[in-house]
């Protein structure tokens, strides 16, 4: 068996690059640790000294609002120092290679990289090529993975439905371009949900998606039967290179989540979306803002889950020093 680059010699999380290949106990440990940090959100003092003296660099080669700000808040609430690399104004735009960027940041004695990149595998490449004491956290790479988003989604689901093994979860929309969906599918199947159902037009599904252990459905109305958790996805127009859809309004008519369609799921179903939302495309405003929506809770939980991942990875990065 090849060694999982994400784990240190003791099998503990050192880098967090993808959910694929991580065990159920490890995912549960992340969720349990996040639980402790989530409880702090109500405190007068929201900051703890766990990562004092550590430096975390947010290296974002691609735009982000929620992910970068919640990573930054998570790091500062753990008392780490945070450096935000704005790549648009950095040397990368002058032609510096990723490897040279890594070497230069290492020379500044940083302890952790949080990286987002438009190319799949960028975070993995950094983890392979960085100094042994540095941890790398994937904040989204191309169409590959977005593991902290998937874990904050699992955390939100668990808050509302504690027994995950009893759940049927529907993921609706642009699965093809979604690194979030891929990570969610791995997380949900690892945590043992009863069913993961992907609901999308054929043009927005990756080839052989069933091999990931999901059931496939091309009809939203039929697909929502018996569903406990509905995850809607953003239509990623910026990644679409060919005509995959006739029009946005037709997509909304067939795959947009409306109040009427929501009634087809279980009455206590929760509605999620990783953001940013295209209102009136994949989800109707009244559903996004409605009583079954937990979309803003996902954002809050992002901080606690990222605090858990940062502190666990930092704690397990010291062995090679």
């Amino acid at each position: 068996m090849t060694k999982n680059i994400q784990l240190n010699a003791e099998g503990k999380l050192k880098h967090f690059l993808t959910i694929d290949g991580l065990s159920r106990p490890l995912l549960t440990e992340i969720l349990d640790t996040a639980e402790s940090f989530a409880a702090m959100a109500g405190n007068q003092v929201k900051k703890v000294p766990l990562l004092r003296g550590k430096t975390i660099v947010n290296v974002f080669f691609e735009n982000s609002t929620r992910t970068r700000t919640t990573f930054e808040l998570a790091a500062t609430r753990l008392s780490a120092d945070v450096l935000n690399m704005n790549i648009a104004t950095s040397s990368t735009s002058k032609g510096e290679s990723l490897l040279d960027t890594i070497r230069n940041l290492e020379a500044m004695h940083v302890d952790m990289f949080v990286v987002r990149h438009s190319l799949s595998g960028a975070a993995h490449f950094m983890a392979q090529n960085t100094a042994p004491h540095i941890s790398v956290i994937n904040a989204g790479d191309g169409q590959h993975a977005h593991p902290t988003q998937a874990m904050l989604d699992m955390f939100t689901i668990r808050q509302h439905k504690p027994d995950l093994t009893d759940l049927r979860v529907a993921i609706i929309g642009d699965i093809l371009h979604s690194r979030v969906a891929r990570s969610q599918i791995f997380a949900l199947t690892t945590l043992g949900v009863k069913e993961v159902r992907v609901i999308a037009p054929r043009t927005l599904l990756p080839a052989k998606v069933e091999t990931l252990g999901v059931t496939v459905c091309h009809d939203l109305q039929a697909g929502l039967q018996d569903i406990d958790v509905i995850i809607t996805l953003r239509l990623q127009k910026e990644r679409m290179t060919s005509a995959l859809l006739p029009s946005e309004s037709e997509y909304y008519k067939c795959f947009g989540l409306t109040q009427a369609k929501l009634k087809l799921a279980k009455p206590d179903a929760i509605v999620m979306h990783p953001g940013p939302i295209n209102r009136g495309v994949e989800i109707d405003s009244s559903v996004a803002d409605g009583p079954q929506s937990v979309i803003l809770q996902q954002v809050s939980n992002g901080i606690a889950v990222r605090m858990a991942v940062l502190s666990m990875a930092m704690q397990n990065s010291g062995e090679a020093r």
């Binding site: 349990d32 639980e35 402790s36 409880a39 109500g42 405190n43 007068q44 703890v48 000294p49 704690q315």
Partner: peptide, 22 residues
Amino acid sequence: ISFYRDDFSQIGINPNVKPSHL
């Protein structure tokens, strides 16, 4: 006091820290 311990890097965090309540 779990999050305030000075031996965090040696023993790691206990995943079941309860919130402080003052």
